[in-house]
């Protein structure tokens, strides 16, 4: 027997981490320079220096504002949102053992919308609950409902998707009912824009909420990476490998609910990212979750930043809701995965 320790390959890991960070930086650089008002990269760096360290470079107030208050915060929020949704998708696909599982398809996003609309328009919970709190309660309600429906339908992993479809419809109907009957015309337009996903209103204070949640969620998921691997052959197989199945499920489902709810509360519902990114990441780094989860975070972040840039430049003089851009990419990918999942019996 060899006594060589088969530890992690650190040089390769550092190279990968460096490469991912570089991709992220390039995407952010693209996001802050491209738009209605093109801004040279050098100016963007100066604006960044001014905003972060108060360096006092000569940058016009308009450019300074566009870069620092508008585009940078927006790009960082897109990164967090993409990373968090991709992570949630990877977790749900592993726990539910279904390649089509993700927050949007399982109705978690729809539940979060209903919760957020309840707070926004009905004023439920007042100031104490807040938009994020309402979205979280809504997403938990959706997860519980979909879980009960799926268990009632026999608990097989394909039932989960059907239950998710039913749950999505129900919560979307509830949201639409509240918006059409209770909201003023102006509120309704705002809500509809928000429901399709929109990074427009993002402020640094939103990032102060989203960044810790995303980081915490990522750490919780990473602690459970090995447990997620053990779910490959189902819950009983995981339990017989020493995984505390009930606790792991509870912790991770709550984590996905929290991640999804936080992002929905800030940017609205963005579909398909949670579905497509984990599959792309699996294709690149394999199925082991210790590598898959960081890959989802990075690829999701880069994808979402680029999708946001597209949403700003696709139609001149107009900003498309981000959900439309992700759906344009995601729907064909969903069809492709569905087609691939069709295996001869």
């Amino acid at each position: 027997m060899s006594h060589l320790a088969i530890g992690p390959n650190w040089p390769a890991r550092f190279a990968l981490a460096g490469l991912s960070l570089a991709a992220l930086v390039v995407a952010i650089a693209l996001a802050v320079t491209v738009g209605e008002m093109p801004i040279p990269l050098a100016v963007a760096f100066r604006a960044l220096g001014n905003g972060l360290f108060d360096l006092g470079y000569p940058v016009s107030a308009i450019q300074q504002g566009v870069i620092f208050e508008y585009r940078l915060s927006r790009a960082l929020m897109a990164a967090l949102c993409g990373g968090a949704l991709a992570l949630s998708g990877a977790i749900l696909q592993a726990l539910l053992r279904n390649p089509l599982a993700e927050p949007y398809i399982l109705g978690v996003s729809a539940g979060a919308s209903t919760g957020a609309v309840c707070v926004m328009i009905l004023g439920l919970g007042g100031a104490t609950l807040g938009l994020s709190g309402g979205a979280f309660l809504g997403s938990v309600a959706a997860l519980v409902l979909v879980g009960l429906l799926a268990a009632g339908a026999g608990g097989a992993s394909d039932r989960v998707i059907l239950a998710g479809v039913a749950g999505s419809q129900l919560f979307n109907a509830a949201t639409a009912t509240i918006v059409t009957t209770m909201a003023s015309a102006e509120q309704a337009r705002g809500v509809m824009f928000w429901l399709l996903g929109n990074f427009g209103g993002v402020r640094w204070s939103d990032l102060a909420v989203a960044a810790p949640v995303a980081l915490l969620g990522f750490l919780v998921c990473m602690v459970h990476a090995k447990a997620l691997d053990a779910f490959a052959f189902g819950a009983d197989a995981a339990a017989s490998l020493g995984i505390p199945v009930a606790r792991v499920r509870l912790v991770l489902l709550a984590t996905t609910a929290l991640l999804t709810a936080t992002m929905v509360a800030i940017v609205g519902t963005v579909g398909f990212v949670g579905l497509v990114i984990p599959h792309a990441a699996r294709f690149l780094v394999g199925p082991g979750h210790a590598r898959l989860l960081p890959a989802c975070l990075i690829i999701g972040a880069v994808f979402m930043i680029l999708a946001d840039v597209l949403s700003r430049i696709l139609v001149p003089q107009q900003i498309l809701p981000i959900g439309i851009v992700t759906a344009l990419v995601g729907a064909p990918a969903f069809a492709f995965i569905l087609y691939r999942a069709r295996r001869p019996a």
Binding site: S2, I6, G7, R97, D229, L241, G242, R282, G288
Partner: peptide
């Protein structure tokens, strides 16, 4: 069975799960 594209050694490696700490590297 599983939907995930695992290799034979991926599956057998799962058997080491109870012997490994949360962040322990794969040992000889």
């Amino acid at each position: 069975t599983t939907e995930i594209a695992l290799t034979v050694c991926d599956v057998v490696r799962l058997g080491r799960t109870p012997h490994r700490a949360a962040f322990a590297a794969w040992s000889a």
